[in-house]
Design a protein around this nucleic acid. Structure first.
Length: 522
RNA sequence: GCCGCGUUCGUCUAGCCCGGUCAGGACGCCAGGUUUUCAUCCUGGAAAUCAGGGGUUCGAAUCCCCUACGCGGUACCA
């Protein structure tokens, strides 16, 4: 059996779409699972929709995500690729190129001429206006909109030659046979059938000399020896054309797998209207690439029986991936699940990694910019991150809910009170914390120690005779008597990490100073 | 309109090919536990008459047919 080869074939119309990522991912996973090759080609035959820099952006995104290609279009030239004619910083690596459609125009022309010669395709000189009128009439009569073959039936060879000589604009159409059922075994959907009487003679070559998708993709996939075409469901209706082209060229067709669509919450095709669709936007908003890949992999696929685990690395996905477990129905993109997966991936990061990834987000924040140099130190930030790690669902939230680490706190006496504590009790509580903390040396100022010592003190005795000792006191929140005012002093917030964690991050000096400051104000 | 694809908890889905489990898991939600607060973590719960209707069968989410609904295609866009 031939080596398995898949390709991702985006159009450079902007950025890597989240749906594109899913397609690319499945192409990648399938190829790697089967020891095959995965490559990138560019479908830039629509000059009206072309966006400057889009090819580069696409590659950057794929590289960033770690979806490595064996060949095709690349940005870094470490494998002696050839510089692209149309895109100066882009290289083409591999022996089946060009991998950029706009560089293959002569090849397409040559093939389509062959089709014309063999009677499988024909010249069409119809103007768009006539085609439009024809179609609206057909739909009005409840007929399927199909080209009426005017040029096939009414334009003689002589006229064709004359028109060509006069540089009349023309297109070339495929000649679809009548009364035939075309059957395809889709890897995901099983057998799919189409009646050719309902298939129009699609345009293969546009009047600007560029091929349409149908022609170009078939020639490319053949040239590049693609064995499995894994693409979006929107291509399913045009598959009879593709099958016909393989037959006309006398080429063996690859296997096809049509992926279910990604949907908005309202089940319409995933679109920008209802949220971000560009991979780069998700990255910009603090999602990890691991989470994005993990999440998108599960949109329309699952590892099957018995597997309850859902957090997987790219490598693990490669190992588990299987086309037969791809679902047929469209999948709603629910960002709540992405958030959860992202939080899981954040928890797996080392502090060093978390620091490197969080810093760019932190540097954008006002509270960080306004902080002292000491509070921007790597050591200090890492401490904050180590206690925030379990609380983050998203990198962009970093520091957000713990801004007291970066600036002074506000004094709010009511916040400091534990339950119905009076001023005197409050002051006593804080003074006790101060005494305890003062006695902890710098080298003993660790998370574990602070917790151990403060907890001991908090459990020591019920502060007021009205409260019972032991477990009952604990239940009534005896620990809060010491711990709540301490934590509130250190943070100035109703909600925050524990006082042990906060004191540890702030350091002895800052902790004591915040305590003294507050005590002085009561 | 025409053609194609699809339809299991709110969402992602297992199970369907090879009929026979209280239709299982995850996210989210709710409750409880741990806990000074928050988050994490742990335990439990609600949540799908398997789109609807007909068959076939002792028995159907699973096989067959019909209907409805959704989506995609219907371009000199991909």
């Amino acid at each position: 059996m031939n080596k398995i080869r898949t390709r991702f074939a985006p159009s450079p119309t902007g950025y890597l779409h989240i749906g594109g990522l899913r397609t690319a991912l499945y192409d990648y996973l399938f190829a790697k699972k089967n020891g095959g090759d995965f490559l990138l080609k560019i479908e830039d035959t629509d000059r009206k929709r072309f966006v400057e820099g889009a090819v580069e952006k696409l590659i950057i995104s794929l590289d960033f995500l770690g979806l490595e290609r064996n060949e095709g279009v690349m940005l870094n030239n470490n494998t002696n690729g050839q510089e692209s004619k149309n895109y100066p910083r882009v290289f083409e690596v591999g022996e089946y190129g060009p991998y950029i459609q706009s560089e293959k125009l002569e090849i397409y022309k040559k093939h389509v001429d062959e089709l014309v010669k063999n009677g499988h395709a024909y010249y069409c000189f119809c103007e768009p206006k006539r085609l439009e009128e024809m179609r609206s009439e057909q739909t009005a009569q409840k007929q399927p909109p199909i080209y009426d073959r005017f040029c096939l039936q009414n334009v003689s060879e002589e006229e064709i030659n004359k028109n060509l000589k006069n540089n009349c604009p023309y297109t070339i159409r495929i000649k679809v046979p009548h009364d035939e059922i075309i059957e395809v075994d889709d890897e995901i959907r099983g057998r799919v059938k189409f009646n050719t009487n309902l298939v129009t003679d699609q345009i293969l070559l546009k009047s600007d000399g560029f091929p349409t998708y149908h022609l170009a993709s078939i020639i490319d996939d053949h040239d590049m020896q693609i064995t499995h075409v894994i693409r979006g469901e929107e291509w399913l209706p045009s598959i009879p054309i593709h099958i016909l082209l393989y037959r006309y060229f006398n080429w063996e067709a690859p296997k096809f797998a049509h992926l279910p669509l990604l949907l908005n919450l309202d089940k319409s095709k995933l679109s920008k209207r209802q949220g971000d669709v560009a991979v780069e936007d998700y990255i910009k908003n603090g999602y990890l690439k691991e989470a994005l890949i993990n999440f998108v992999a599960f949109l329309g696929w699952n590892p099957g029986k018995g597997e309850t685990q859902e957090i997987f690395t790219l490598e693990e996905l490669v190992e588990k991936f299987d086309l037969t477990h791809v679902h047929k129905a469209g999948a709603v993109f629910d960002i709540k699940k992405l958030d959860w997966i992202n939080s899981q991936w954040i928890k797996k990061l080392s502090i060093e990694e978390l620091y490197q990834k969080s810093l760019p987000f932190l540097e954008e924040k006002e509270f960080y910019k306004n902080a002292s140099a000491e509070k921007k130190s790597e050591d200090y930030i890492k401490k904050i991150l180590s206690i925030e790690q379990d609380r983050l669902t998203n990198l962009s939230e970093v520091g957000e809910s713990n801004q007291f680490f970066f600036r002074d706190t506000n004094f709010d006496k009511e916040l400091l009170r534990w339950k119905d504590m009076n001023d005197e009790d409050l002051k006593k509580s804080l003074e006790k914390s101060l005494r305890v903390l003062e006695n902890i040396t710098d080298e003993n100022w660790t998370r574990e120690n602070l917790e151990k010592i403060l907890m001991e003190k908090a459990d020591e005795k019920p502060a007021s005779p009205a409260r019972l000792a032991g477990a009952m006191a604990k239940r009534a929140g005896g620990r809060g008597e010491l711990l709540w005012p301490l934590r509130a002093t250190l943070t100035g917030e109703k909600k925050s990490p524990s006082p042990f964690e906060c004191a540890w991050v702030l350091g002895k000096e800052e902790t004591l100073s915040r305590l003294k400051n507050t005590i002085g104000k009561i």
